[in-house]
Write a protein that binds this DNA or RNA. Sequence first.
DNA 1: CAGTGGTCTAGACCACCTG
DNA 2: AGGTGGTCTAGACCACTGA
Lengths: 253, 253
Amino acid sequence: MGTTQLESVPEPKYWHLKTVLSEALDSEFTVGEILPNERDLAARFGVARATLRQALEQLELEGRLQRRRGVGTTVAPPRMGVAVGPGQRAWPGMPGDDWQPADCAFAVPPAAVAAALETGREEAVHTVRSTRTTRGQAVAAELLYVPQASVPELSAIDAPSGPARARAVLRELQRLEPEGHDSAVELGSARADDAKELDRLPGAPVLVVTTRYLAGGRTAALSVATYRADTCRLTFGDSGSVRIEDGPERRAS
Amino acid sequence: MGTTQLESVPEPKYWHLKTVLSEALDSEFTVGEILPNERDLAARFGVARATLRQALEQLELEGRLQRRRGVGTTVAPPRMGVAVGPGQRAWPGMPGDDWQPADCAFAVPPAAVAAALETGREEAVHTVRSTRTTRGQAVAAELLYVPQASVPELSAIDAPSGPARARAVLRELQRLEPEGHDSAVELGSARADDAKELDRLPGAPVLVVTTRYLAGGRTAALSVATYRADTCRLTFGDSGSVRIEDGPERRAS
DNA sequence: CAGTGGTCTAGACCACCTG
DNA sequence: AGGTGGTCTAGACCACTGA
């Protein structure tokens, strides 16, 4: 059959829509500008609102848009680079980092954490909750798990919880000799509590950075940090960060 | 008003559904097992198919499920750790890495890449396309941009494209004195070509690792590697990788 | 060819924010 | 109170896989 198949693989509407919108964002909008609302946009492009939303969701995932319920959709600024490698917070609680301890508890951690710490299944550990703020915006929430064995000097007679306790745990931790650390990054979705701290809805995409701190031949502490995937670019490395502007210049129409 | 508000913030159906399914996956399914189809599941839970799909999408994003059109939904194995830091491919083309060069072109790169390489806006660079395979599965697709200035010995008289050319570029690159590199990780969605190589649909969530290779005080090469976010956990660090099993044991029902 | 997940529609109501 | 994005429904058709 000599039929040449032009456009034999029609791309989905939402995909085409995303491309069109993306180009419009580059050429006709400035950072912070608000877009027309979803119902208007859908009508303008002649698609159902759900289809338009599929395109907007992708653009938000890529950090191009920011949507807030009750407010509207705005053009997002370029993602900010956030250092997570050596040099930045080589050891938890180092001065000068932008982490703010918020609270502390002494409780049995999730089984996965207990396994990594090599503690018993029912053994309680110090759990420090912190928040990382960059340029005035909360970008990450962290849970730091510290076995009692790592901070033997720490007595339970002080406040068993609260910010003061959190700082006490970090202070003790710093007295150990750091022997290094290693990290892993993976995609996740924000739990309800993390979402609240990050000013996002539950289920928002996040980059989960799991870091193991080594001292005395053991895992002295384990950090699980949850970064906003929409606004952050995590930088690793020994000599500054890669600075790739993401796309053509953004101009007003 | 003394009305205590129990359940004043009812969680969305899809969120509750996700929790229920997640627990079921832990307790009643084994890795690789196929779930009932979406229409059956939706009926079983008494929700619309779109709502059920919202829950499945989240679970897939978290690497718990794997869905394939025409086939079905299966329980995904734990994510595999993939090393992207020092030690693994300290310099592109090192022997023993699991990257496979596929092709090469000599073309003008995207503006963002040209800026990072500090090349002219219209200056063509060598562009090597590679694929990374781990345990028999394609996990990443990479574009490596190499300015002509980094490989001056390379003449254009050999094959201007193809796998042989790709290897030639990498070979020349290895002759430079590596001075380090730095990387950044961010969330993205797969372009059509990357999606095809990774056996995913366009728009699938990916982790984009941008690495700048330094030599002679300049950026000698720039790598943009696209990793499957659903199946990969990227590991960095100097002493092995963190191995966090993600959740309770998985058993058959 | 039957069955799967992927796309799309046209509605409805809800939660949240701001004036 | 009015407008925004977020959730949900009950359908329909399409693209792909495998027997």
